[in-house]
Amino acid sequence: MGRKQRKKEKQKESTRELIGIDEITDYSLKTPYGELVYFKIHPTNISVLSDESITARIYALMTVLKGIVEIEMLCLNSKENFEDNKQYLKRRIEMEQNPAIRNLLKQDSTNLDRMQVQMATAREFLIIIRLKDEKESNIFPYLSRIEKNLKDQGFATRRADNQDIKRLLGVYYEQNVTTEKYEDYDGERWIVLGDM
């Protein structure tokens, strides 16, 4: 295959192909390197826990890690970054001659600071299980055992579904934390089925 032909074929690839995803199922992400199943862990605010409680949480996590060989972990910073907006407002405040407008810009800047502080703890923690050559009939009992193990160790968790996985990819690849429903294809929400 010539260079031009390869370039043409590369342009036809979908976004999923470009980032190495074969399929997003109802419960997993299929890749050439295995099927990934995500468990969302709801974080615990350790700043209010005693030293003994923190030690117990660490021990519980060690127990989970020792019990599951295929485990991987991921932490996503699932908050918006307002730095560009804050820098813009700072420049506008310096340039603005009208005191009323300058006051409004300062209020906007203060509001962005407040929003950023409120979102500072918006992190998501995930346990990832990489399935390789698992029989279809064994997958769900295996995943249920893992979920039960996590819950037995005191972690508030649930298995990520199709929309959760799409949102995780949106946050990971483009820092998109505002979209409520992700489409399988661009413009999918505008298609009216049966209207032909």
Score class of each variant (00 low, 15 high):
residue 1 M to W: 02
residue 4 K to V: 00
residue 6 R to V: 06
residue 7 K to G: 08
residue 8 K to Y: 05
residue 11 Q to Y: 09
residue 12 K to S: 12
residue 14 S to I: 01
residue 15 T to R: 11
residue 15 T to L: 10
residue 23 E to A: 08
residue 24 I to L: 09
residue 26 D to H: 15
residue 28 S to Q: 08
residue 34 G to K: 07
residue 34 G to E: 13
residue 35 E to N: 12
residue 36 L to F: 03
residue 36 L to E: 10
residue 40 K to N: 14
residue 41 I to C: 05
residue 47 S to A: 09
residue 47 S to E: 01
residue 48 V to W: 13
residue 50 S to E: 06
residue 67 G to I: 07
residue 68 I to C: 02
residue 69 V to M: 02
residue 70 E to C: 04
residue 71 I to A: 12
residue 74 L to P: 02
residue 75 C to G: 01
residue 77 N to E: 10
residue 77 N to M: 01
residue 80 E to G: 08
residue 80 E to F: 04
residue 84 D to F: 06
residue 86 K to T: 03
residue 87 Q to F: 09
residue 87 Q to T: 14
residue 90 K to I: 00
residue 91 R to K: 13
residue 92 R to M: 10
residue 92 R to P: 01
residue 93 I to A: 09
residue 94 E to D: 12
residue 96 E to T: 14
residue 98 N to F: 07
residue 100 A to Y: 12
residue 100 A to N: 11
residue 101 I to Y: 00
residue 104 L to I: 04
residue 109 S to T: 00
residue 111 N to G: 04
residue 120 A to G: 04
residue 121 T to N: 12
residue 122 A to G: 01
residue 122 A to W: 13
residue 125 F to W: 07
residue 125 F to Q: 05
residue 129 I to R: 14
residue 133 D to H: 13
residue 134 E to S: 10
residue 143 L to M: 03
residue 148 K to N: 13
residue 148 K to T: 15
residue 150 L to I: 10
residue 154 G to N: 10
residue 154 G to F: 11
residue 155 F to L: 07
residue 156 A to F: 09
residue 159 R to V: 06
residue 168 L to C: 13
residue 169 L to I: 13
residue 172 Y to G: 01
residue 173 Y to T: 13
residue 176 N to L: 02
residue 185 Y to I: 10
residue 186 D to A: 13
residue 188 E to V: 00
residue 188 E to T: 01
residue 192 V to W: 01
residue 194 G to L: 10
residue 195 D to N: 14
